[in-house]
Design a protein around this nucleic acid. Structure first.
Lengths: 266, 266
DNA sequence: CGATGAATTATGCGATCACATTTTGAGGGA
DNA sequence: TCCCTCAAAATGTGATCGCATAATTCATCG
C-alpha cells in the first residue's frame, strides 16, 4: 500500500492524530499472517480483525477526549490515515453510531456530536442510576481479589490527582470505576454503563481541561477512597450512595464550569 | 439484478420469512429514485437508505420473535432474500451486534444467541431499574396528550389480552410501554431501554408462546391499567412501583415456565 | 452401516469500483 | 469586499471481486 507516500496527508494531525494507529494496525496484520506458522509447540495467536482494531483505536481516541466535538469523521480519511481500505473503518463507524457515540448528519456524514447542557445532565442522571446500582451489587458480589484490584486502582487515582495530571486522572478514574462495574455480576448493567461512557467521556476532557490548575481540589468531590472502603465492608447502601454522590457532584462541577453547545437547537 | 431468478432460494422461509422484506426494499429504492422529480409543488420524499431498511426489517423480525434462538444470520443469505448486495446487510448486522442483539461466533458468524436463565434474569433486573425510573419521570414530565395516548394504548393492550392473541398482546405491550418511555424526557434512558428490549424481546414470544391458552390469566400480573391511572394522577412513586412490579412479575412468570438454554456454559 | 477424508460450497472479511450527491474553492462580476 | 457561478474534489452508499477459512457434502474404505 506504499505506506510512505502518504506521510504528508495527515488530515487528523490537527488533534494529535490517533497516536500510533497505523503501526498497531500494520502489526496486527503481520501477526494475523503468522497464525499458521508450523507445528512447533507455540501458543495460539488471537486473530484480531481489522475492523475490530479500528474500533478499538477510535474508541480510545474518543474516550480520552482526543477528538473535538463537531469533528467530522470520514471513512476515507480515516482509512488513509490508518493505511486500510474503507471497509473496516465503515464497520467501526457504524458501531459507534449505533451506540450513539457518533451521530449522522442529514447527508450521512458522521460527527462527534456537540453536547448541550441539558443533554449532559441527562446522561449524568442515567449514569447515577446505573452506576449507583452497579456499586450496590458489587458490595455483595465482589471477590476478595476484586476488592484488592479496586483498592489499587483507587490508590493510582489518588496519585494522579495529586500529580495534577488531568489526562492521567481521567484514565485512572475510568480504570477505577470499571474495576468496580466489572465486578457487579450483571453483564446487562455493564453494557449499559459502557454505552453511557462512550457518549459522555469524549467531553470530560474538554470540560475538565479548562481548570488545569484546580485539579487538586477535585478530590473534594471525589469519593473514591470512601467508596473503596465501603465496598470492602460490603456496605451496599453506602457504596451506592457514594457512587451516586461522586457522579452527581462531578457532573455539577462540569455543568457549572464547562462550556456547552447552545441549548436552543432541537 | 434479475430479481426473479432467486425466487426459489428462500433459505429463511423456514421461520416464516421476514414478511415482505423484499417488497419493502424494492419500493424503497424506487422511491429513492423519484426524489428529484421536477419542481411541481410536491412534498419532499424522505430517502431511506437500504441498510436502514434492512435494519428496520431485521429489528422487527427480532422483536416479534420470528427468529429462533441459535439461528445463524449470514449476510449473503439475507442479501439474497432481500434482493440487495451484502453491504447494506452487513451494516445492519454490525449494528445489531454492537447492540448485543446478535453475538458473534469465534469465526465471526452472527447468531441470535440462546438465552440462559441467569442471563434473562439479569436483563430483567436491568429493565426493572431503567424502566421503573422512566415511569417515575413520566409522572412529572408527561403532557396531557402523552397521557391520552398512553391510556389508549393501555386499552388496546387489555383488549389483546382478552382476545387471547399472544402476538397482538406482545406488540401492544411494546406499544404501551414505549408510549410511556418516550414521554419520560430522558433520551439517554430511552436509548438504554431500547437496547434492553432488543436483547430480551426475541425471547418473549418463545417463552410466552407455550401458554397460548392461559393468556387471560396474564392480566393478573399485568398492572398496566393501574399504571396508566397512576401516571394520570402524576403519582411518580406509585407509577414507578407498578412498572417495576409489572416487569418483575412478568419476568418471574417466564423464568418459572420458559425453557432456557442450559445454565452451564460460561 | 458407519466412519474418514477429500472436494465442494458457504462464509467472513477486506479491497476496489461505480455512481450520485454534497462540499469545497477558485474565479469573476457588482 | 461581498456574492454568485461553476468546476473539481470529497463523500456516502451500494455492488462486485478475491482470498482464506470454515462448513458441508459425498464418496470411499473398513
Amino acid at each position: 500500500m506504499a505506506r510512505g507516500t502518504r506521510e504528508d496527508r495527515g488530515a487528523f494531525r490537527a488533534f494529535g492524530a490517533f497516536g500510533d494507529l497505523r503501526w498497531s494496525v500494520a502489526i496486527g496484520r503481520a501477526v494475523e499472517r503468522m497464525t499458521k506458522a508450523s507445528s512447533l509447540g507455540l501458543e495460539a495467536i488471537e486473530v484480531v480483525r481489522l475492523h475490530e482494531q479500528v474500533y478499538q483505536t477510535l474508541t480510545r481516541a474518543l474516550m480520552s477526549g482526543r477528538i473535538p466535538p463537531g469533528r467530522k469523521l470520514t471513512s476515507r480519511k480515516l482509512a488513509a490515515e490508518l493505511g486500510t481500505s474503507d471497509m473496516p473503518v465503515r464497520a467501526a463507524l457504524v458501531r459507534l453510531q449505533s451506540l450513539r457515540a457518533l451521530v449522522a448528519l442529514p447527508n450521512g456524514s458522521l460527527i462527534l456530536p456537540r453536547m448541550r447542557r441539558g443533554q449532559f445532565a441527562d446522561l449524568m442522571a442515567a449514569r447515577v442510576l446505573c452506576e449507583g446500582q452497579a456499586a450496590e451489587l458489587v458490595a455483595s458480589h465482589a471477590t476478595a481479589a476484586d476488592l484488592r484490584a479496586i483498592r489499587q486502582a483507587g490508590a493510582a487515582l489518588t496519585q494522579a490527582a495529586l500529580d495534577q495530571d488531568i489526562d492521567d486522572y481521567l484514565a485512572r478514574n475510568y480504570e477505577f470505576k470499571f474495576h468496580i462495574y466489572r465486578a457487579c455480576g450483571s453483564e446487562a448493567l455493564i453494557f449499559l454503563i459502557e454505552t453511557l461512557w462512550l457518549q459522555a467521556a469524549p467531553f470530560l476532557r474538554q470540560f475538565a481541561g479548562k481548570f488545569e490548575g484546580a485539579l487538586a481540589g477535585i478530590l473534594e468531590i471525589d469519593y473514591h477512597d470512601e467508596l473503596a472502603a465501603a465496598l470492602a465492608e460490603r456496605n451496599a447502601t453506602l457504596a451506592g450512595a457514594l457512587m451516586r454522590r461522586d457522579i452527581h457532584e462531578g457532573a455539577e462541577y462540569l455543568l457549572a464550569h464547562g462550556d456547552f453547545d447552545a441549548e436552543a437547537s432541537s
